[in-house]
Amino acid sequence: MEIKVGEIIRLKREEKRYGLKDFAKLVGISPGYLSQLENGHKVNPKLETILRIIKELDIDIDMLLGLEKEGENINVKIPSLLKLVLAKDRNYKVMEDKDILKKLCNIIDKALESKYLVEDQMLYALFLEDIYIQIETILKRYMALQIIKYDLE
């Protein structure tokens, strides 16, 4: 999946809750031009325009241009909405298996049904946090087992 500069700008703008017209006005360009940048129809904007955009959106220019420094974890810099786009593409592949999809739906159903059993909002939030921690713990266990299995082979 290829992520383009315009997509990063749009996702970061939406993450910061700027409307297209308001943000275009803020950086001194027309809404139509901003839309064309975000949709990839304009691919060579003036440097001053890009600099104003990255300043207002707090985007790292190296990340925007796809320049990753050695040993640097680029995931820390990717806007959260962009992470969702990347995860969605990856998750579609997992959910193509009907048995896995059924199990995931059952897990989500149980978590949602629990809201009616644990009526207190704070306790339900703690319940969900416990589920999250348990998933992390189980994942680490299975990743370790996977490493052991490959070492034995």
Score class of each variant (00 low, 15 high):
Arg90Leu: 11
Glu7Gln: 15
Glu48Gln: 14
Gly71Phe: 13
Arg90Met: 12
Ile9Ser: 08
Asp22Ala: 15
Leu86Asn: 10
Lys69Phe: 09
Ala87Lys: 12
Leu152Ser: 15
Leu11Gly: 00
Lys110His: 09
Arg90Phe: 13
Tyr92Pro: 00
Asn75Asp: 11
Asp99Trp: 04
Ile107Gln: 10
Val43Ala: 01
Ile138Asp: 06
Lys25Ser: 12
Val43Trp: 00
Lys77His: 07
Asn75Cys: 02
Ser30Arg: 12
Pro45Arg: 04
Met143Cys: 06
Lys93Arg: 14
Cys105Phe: 12
Ala144Lys: 15
Ser80Lys: 05
Asp89Glu: 15
Leu112Glu: 15
Glu113Leu: 12
Glu15Arg: 07
Leu64Cys: 04
Ile108Cys: 01
Asp120Ile: 08
Val76Asn: 02
Ile131Val: 14
Leu26Lys: 11
His41Glu: 10
Ile29Thr: 10
Ile108Thr: 04
Pro45Tyr: 04
Glu15Lys: 01
Leu37His: 03
Ile29Asn: 02
Lys98Ser: 14
Asn73Ile: 09
Met143Lys: 11
Leu101Gln: 11
Leu145Tyr: 10
Asp109Gly: 01
Ile53Thr: 09
Gly40Pro: 05
Leu81Gly: 03
Ile108His: 07
Lys55Pro: 00
Lys93Asn: 10
Tyr132Ala: 09
Lys83Gln: 09
Asp130Leu: 05
Pro79His: 05
Tyr92Cys: 07
Asp109Cys: 00
Thr49Ile: 14
Ile50Leu: 15
Pro79Asp: 12
Leu81Asp: 06
Phe23Gly: 01
Leu101Trp: 03
Lys21Cys: 02
Asp58Met: 00
Ile50Arg: 05
Glu70Met: 03
Leu86Met: 15
Ile147Phe: 05
Glu48Asp: 15
Lys12Val: 02
Ile50Phe: 01
Glu153Arg: 12
Arg13Cys: 11
Arg90Ile: 13
Leu81Val: 02
Ser35Pro: 02
Ile50Pro: 01
Arg17Pro: 01
Pro79Lys: 07
Asp22His: 03
Ile59Ser: 03
Thr137His: 08
Gln146Lys: 14
Glu70Lys: 14
Asp109Arg: 14
